[in-house]
Amino acid sequence: MKRSILAIALLAAPALASEDIADQYPGSVLYSKPYEVLPGVFSAIGATAPPTYENAGHNNNLSFIITGDGVVVINGGASYQLAEALHLEIKAVTDQPVRLVFNENGQGHAMLGNSYWVDQGVEIVAHVDAATEFESHGGQSLRAAQARVLEKADNTRVALPTQTFDDSYLVEMGDMKIEARYLGPAHSPGDIVIWLPQKNLVVSGDMAFHERMLPIFEHTMTADWIETWDTEFEALKATYVIPGHGHPTNMDQVRRYTRDYLVFLRAQIGVHLDEGGDLADAYYVDQSPYTNLDTFEELATKNAGRVYEQMEFE
């Protein structure tokens, strides 16, 4: 079993993820059952499709670390019920209590489940910018989740992190050192990574994608994301990566489908601008090298348009 897990981590075959794969864990609101990526580090891999009623909004990875003196959870989850379901899975593999939850960013699927963890008396930590983002837009995220997953959002409410930090938040618990780091501007406000130096593993959150196309939001500054990647993320020299979406993998894979995709798209838009192209045609610049990624059809044209709007004034 461990050999197959390592094979997944090192080879990261994109065929493992698909928007068309149905729920993998009947009987649980979780899309898939958590598995042990490396000793003591587990992750429940979310769907690589957009959030739907069928996947209960579990389209990101919910991870946890068993330290020997407690459990640290990474991501509050997209609802009270998803967080509760993850907690049941944690209790099935350890008697250690959950002591801390990290929110990887300020999006609903990272923070809406905070409502469950707060009720358990667990401390919740996020970057200050992520907390501000959720405070401003959490109500909107909650309403969208309620409209999308209906009764599967029952009991979910907006609950803010109980602690925030600016640059890093260090935890020594049991025999584990856990470092939450803000590396710089990336996908969304307050994106953080969780670095486990003893395991040479980074839980990258939305810093890194590889099985689904990354989304570029209005506030996603792609040039800044590339700079953060080159100067800070690569410096970790991680062997293993648990991305925000998709299966555990390695740096080569996430570099190819995150950093290199951003560079590629900016180059395509740069040529388009040099040729006097307008926004209407920018949506259709060639992105064919990335058509294998899930959510390509939903995101490729939007990404191109947003990069055009950014680069037009750079």
Rank of each mutant, 00 (worst) to 15 (best):
E84G: 04
D294H: 04
R266I: 12
I65E: 02
V149A: 13
F313K: 10
I8N: 05
R181M: 14
D281N: 13
D281W: 06
R181E: 08
E133Q: 09
F102L: 03
I226K: 08
D20T: 11
L6V: 07
T239S: 10
V202F: 01
S63W: 01
N155A: 11
S115L: 05
E133G: 06
G138K: 04
F264Q: 07
D20S: 11
Q140V: 10
Y25S: 13
T162W: 05
D129L: 06
V37N: 02
G174Y: 04
E275S: 15
T94R: 04
A110C: 08
L183Y: 09
T48E: 12
P97G: 10
D129F: 02
D154M: 15
P189G: 09
E123Q: 15
V118R: 00
T295F: 12
T301S: 12
E151G: 12
S18W: 06
N114R: 01
T295H: 11
D278K: 15
I178A: 03
A304R: 05
E314Y: 08
P34A: 08
A44I: 10
I194Q: 02
F233K: 04
K199R: 15
A147N: 13
Y169I: 07
G68I: 04
E232N: 03
R256T: 13
A83V: 02
Q146D: 03
I192T: 05
A85S: 14
V101G: 02
E151Y: 14
R212A: 13
V71E: 03
N103S: 08
K91R: 15
V254N: 02
Q120C: 05
D23V: 10
G57C: 07
F209Q: 00
D206Y: 04
S168K: 15
T48S: 14
V128T: 14
L196M: 06
W229T: 06
L160V: 06
L88N: 13
P248D: 00
L265C: 07
Y31N: 12
F42G: 06
P289M: 04
I45S: 08
G276M: 10
G277A: 12
I269E: 01
V171P: 01
V171M: 08
V285E: 07
D20G: 06
I74E: 00
A208C: 08
M213F: 12
I226P: 03
H187K: 05
Q268P: 08
Q146R: 14
E84L: 06
G276E: 10
Q287W: 05
V158E: 01
I242D: 01
R306T: 07
H109G: 09
V285M: 11
G190I: 03
S79C: 10
E312Y: 13
G184H: 09
R157L: 11
K91S: 14
A44P: 10
F296T: 06
I242S: 01
L11N: 15
T249K: 05
A267S: 12
A130H: 02
A126M: 06
E211C: 08
S43K: 09
T291P: 03
A17W: 04
A144K: 15
H109C: 13
I216C: 08
D166Y: 10
L82T: 11
V29E: 05
E314N: 13
G68F: 04
F134D: 00
V171S: 00
G205T: 01
G57Q: 04
E227M: 12
A110N: 00
R148C: 13
F165A: 02
H87R: 01
A56T: 10
S168A: 15
H58R: 12
Y308C: 11
L160W: 03
N200A: 13
